[in-house]
Nucleic acid binder design. Sequence first.
DNA 1: AAACGACCCTGAAAGC
DNA 2: TGCTTTCAGGGTCGTT
Length: 273
Amino acid sequence: MPELPEVEVTKQSLEQHLQGQCIKSINIREKRLRWDLDQTTLNSLLGQRIHNLSRRGKYILINTEAGSALLHLGMSGSIGILENDRPLKKHDHFDLIMSSNQIIRFNDPRRFGSFIWAGKNPEAHKLLNKLGPEPLENNDLGTHLYRLSKGRKTSVKAFIMNAQIVVGVGNIYASEALFISGIHPKRKANRISKKRYERLATAIQETLTKSIEMGGTTLRDFSYSQGEEKIGYFKQELFTYGRTGAECKCCRSLVRQMVLSGRSSFYCANCQH
DNA sequence: AAACGACCCTGAAAGC
DNA sequence: TGCTTTCAGGGTCGTT
């Protein structure tokens, strides 16, 4: 599934191809995504020159003079950048046709992704205006987490996966960062010292940065970039995620799995408290 | 305000 | 072998 590292790689790749180009047309074959594709509002994009792309959490912003569109890959979305037209594959839901004749093709089997118009002030859009800070751009993430944890009785894992607290920490990286910082995923958010939050913040930043450098984590049906299946090598680096019953890489006791707020969580009961 | 569960959906994997 | 069931998961929304 695309987590922040995969979204970042996709954004960089798209920007390289799209910057300065105009959108000639938009072809919609399946409008039923997370929200219905709205041809009327997407018409705002037609003929627009793409100024640049940016990223906010897992949203990619396509910025033009007329305003910005938000692209989200959901759980199974991917973008193909095609030099020439190709036969359609299953779940190729829409295309952007560029002035260079390149085709930006969106494929998403589970249709949890989205593509919506956000107007001239996208940061004020309701999907973006409540988001927490970017983990890799915040110099004092530990203090931020500690401050917001006051009075929070939810588990620390649910806490750091809450995009209103900090963006971009998905299920994989939450388990990994908690393992690295030695914190039990079930521990209450308001029962963690500032020092431990600082360690957790560092672990979040380290694990995201390392994953970006390695091209992300590939699991199951995930593929991204230019229609090619790129393999993310970060999977080999995982300490706990998906390793139920295997030996902990630090103490050799067995990795355990439990469900927290409806999400599988992986941890070592010996290393994490 | 915070926390929790339902929901959206398909395909892979497990179960029979 | 082949069919059926279960599970996975990000993020939003409605309810408690």
